[in-house]
Amino acid sequence: MPSCGHTERMNIKSVTSKYIDQEQWVAVLSWALLSSFCLYLLGQREQTPFFSPHWIIAAVFFVVFMVCFTIATREQPYKNEPWLRLSLVFVQLVAIFSLYYLIPYSVVAILMTICVAQLPYYTSIRNSVLISIPLSVPLWLIYQFGWGDSYAWVSAILFWAFNLFAIVTMGTRLRETEALERELAINRELRATQMLLEEASKQNERTRIARNIHDLIGHHLTALSINLQVASRKAGDDLKPTLEKSQSITKLLLSDVREAVSDLRDSAVLDIEKALQSLAYRSADKQVEVRCQKNLGIQAIDIAEAVLRISQEAVTNFLKHSNGNRQSISLSRQGNTLCLFIEDNGSTQHFKEGNGLTGMQERANDLGAELIVEAKSKGFNLQLTLEDNV
């Protein structure tokens, strides 16, 4: 059976390959068939033979549309999100309207269906439907009055219905994908929290055992030592050596018990490495690496929880908002100082502190820790430094 992390990577990969890649390939296939059909029929016309200026301009607009569509639907983020993609969508619309004027066949409106299917990525389904209405009007006007097609209004209504279907289908798929991503994010957090709770339970159990040993065995050994001391004073000369030896052994045993209790208390630290490693992530376009210093223990549960929650929030922000493809989380100790360093290679031009970073700062303030956030043009860095007297 695959591990949870492996299952998560498989789910993300299946979503990418099942929806994004297939959508693009279907769009490319539709474009290829449509453009070949239209350009062939256009070249058969006496007014627009093959490789005439009219024919070449139409071919150029077909190519422009597909180039812009391919760039606009790239999975990896761009620096200027979402304005670059919206600009490319606008260019696609210009290419479509131009083809309406150049191609006398209303099937060109198939490109509009491909184009409006991108709208749910940028706005709601309701807004996408409203936008699709005026986008369907040029098809009627151009073919009705430009090409003399008396049934152009029928084509406009039918293609608008196709556009509605594409918008609703895409919007539904996007909601399903977002729900899956939220579920995977929750699973990551639950696994990390579960591991932290397991470590906290182990810590509590070690502390309980140490307390019981100290309170019970230590108490009885102390009482035994006192009784042996009293007995040696009252005993005859023949028993004193034996009682003194017994008392010496009792003191030695009491010292060993105290040392064992101290060792148990000192070892009652949280192993946070497993919890942090559960945040590691790998998909086709993003990767989260976790590095944790070996034998690094944290004694205070509130410190361990703060380190884990800040790391979780950083991973969530990276997966949702960063246009980078790699993030690293590093936790190390120098003496009593813990240092959590998180960085990614995404470019940041307009940085605005949101609820996630505000929550990180609040957690750091509660612990008296220092949190430094740096948004650079070639990366985003976060450093948490705090004292942990293990």
Rank of each mutant, 00 (worst) to 15 (best):
S3N: 13
G5K: 15
N11E: 13
Y19L: 09
E23I: 05
A27W: 01
S30L: 14
W31Q: 07
Q47H: 08
V60F: 12
C68T: 07
C68I: 03
A72P: 08
T73G: 09
N80P: 00
W83Y: 01
V107P: 01
I110Q: 04
M112K: 00
I131S: 10
L135H: 07
W160D: 02
F162Q: 03
N163Y: 02
N163C: 15
T169G: 06
M170R: 15
E176G: 04
A179Y: 08
R182H: 08
L184D: 01
E199N: 05
D215E: 09
D215K: 12
I217W: 04
T222V: 06
I226R: 12
G236M: 12
D237Q: 15
L243G: 11
L253S: 15
L254K: 10
L254E: 04
E259L: 09
D266N: 15
V269P: 09
D271H: 14
Q277T: 13
Q277F: 05
S283W: 03
Q299S: 14
A304W: 03
V307H: 04
V315T: 08
S332T: 15
F341M: 01
G346A: 09
T348D: 13
G354Y: 03
G354R: 07
L357G: 11
A364Q: 04
A364D: 00
G368S: 08
I372N: 08
S377Q: 14
